[in-house]
Simulated scan of single mutants.
Amino acid sequence: MYNFKEIRCSQRFLIRSFFIVFLFIGNIANASQSLDQQTVTEMIAKADRYRLNSEAASKVISLVNLYESGQLDKTRQYNVYTRPNRESLVVFKSAVEAGQKMLMIEDNYWLLMPKSRRPIRITPMQKLLGEASVGDISTLTWSEDYQGSWVKQQSLTLPSGESLQAHQLKLISKTKGASYQTIDLWVSVDRAFPIKADLYLRSGKIAKQAWFEEGVRNELPSVVAMTLLDKIQPNKKTVIEYLEISEQKLEDKFYNPAYLSRNSVSGL
């Protein structure tokens, strides 16, 4: 006579055993696909180079198109001067903002208005205010401002409908003045070209989603535009076109808020 109770127990034991084996194999597979810290760091630095094409002091001419409910609302131009050690000067070039400047020295920020002789200290959060926040156009470097880790490899669907394999990376701010506390960044598996980024505030709330457009600059594959979808005000969208990036070094005086408050830099 068969002992059906024993048979059922044996069946349950086998099922549990197979499940544990498959789970163990799956964990081994996932571990083998994981990327080490050095590889992730190199990947983030490479993604940065697609945006700036240079690690030297640079001038970035940015054209910002502001859309509301699908209609072009405003266009603004900014000339952004960057140099190593997280120093940037943003010169507002559009007529309605003429004379305004933003200076960023590590975690310190100043807004300089044309009719004021006094630099206005602002906070990292204030830097993000406005339709086209300076934090989004100042070409901050992920490799300098964030610590990255690998999350997973996945198939990512582009706005065009095309799919490609991408690494998802988690970037956590390592400076007080970073524009966003955390960033989920997707880069292509084959070249580490930046594809998409979800940008989170310190509260943990997603603020914007960025999509990067590839083109050619100076005969090199480059990010030529970035589309920002506002997740707080979904009817708003910003498209930033990087019209020109060139190596250009400003004198030290231009990174001094006292000098900027007393002198016009309209020629920059």
Rank of each mutant, 00 (worst) to 15 (best):
D107M: 05
L129M: 09
T182G: 08
E213G: 06
S94L: 10
F212C: 04
N79H: 13
T175Y: 13
V134H: 04
I206P: 05
N79T: 11
P194A: 05
Q168L: 09
E106I: 04
D107Q: 03
I245D: 07
F22P: 01
D230G: 01
F212P: 01
L229S: 07
G161F: 15
N85H: 12
S32K: 11
K127T: 04
K176N: 08
E241A: 13
L128R: 03
A29E: 15
W211T: 06
S17F: 15
L171W: 12
A132C: 04
Q248N: 12
S94F: 09
S266F: 04
S138C: 07
D252G: 01
I183L: 02
E131H: 13
L185V: 13
L112F: 03
A178T: 15
G26M: 05
E55F: 03
F254Q: 04
Q233S: 09
G135W: 03
Q11P: 00
P84A: 08
G161I: 13
G177K: 07
Y180C: 01
S54P: 12
S143R: 10
G177N: 02
R121S: 13
E131I: 01
G148Y: 12
V134C: 10
L129F: 14
S34K: 14
N30G: 06
F18S: 08
Y200L: 06
V96S: 14
I44N: 04
F4N: 13
E144Q: 12
F13M: 09
K208E: 15
Q154D: 15
T75I: 12
R118A: 11
L158S: 03
K46W: 10
R12S: 09
D198K: 08
V80S: 09
F19G: 08
Y2W: 06
T238G: 02
E219R: 10
S222T: 12
Y78R: 02
I15K: 13
S261D: 14
L140D: 01
K176D: 11
R51I: 08
N235W: 05
N79M: 01
G215N: 03
E251V: 07
D36A: 11
L250C: 13
A56R: 09
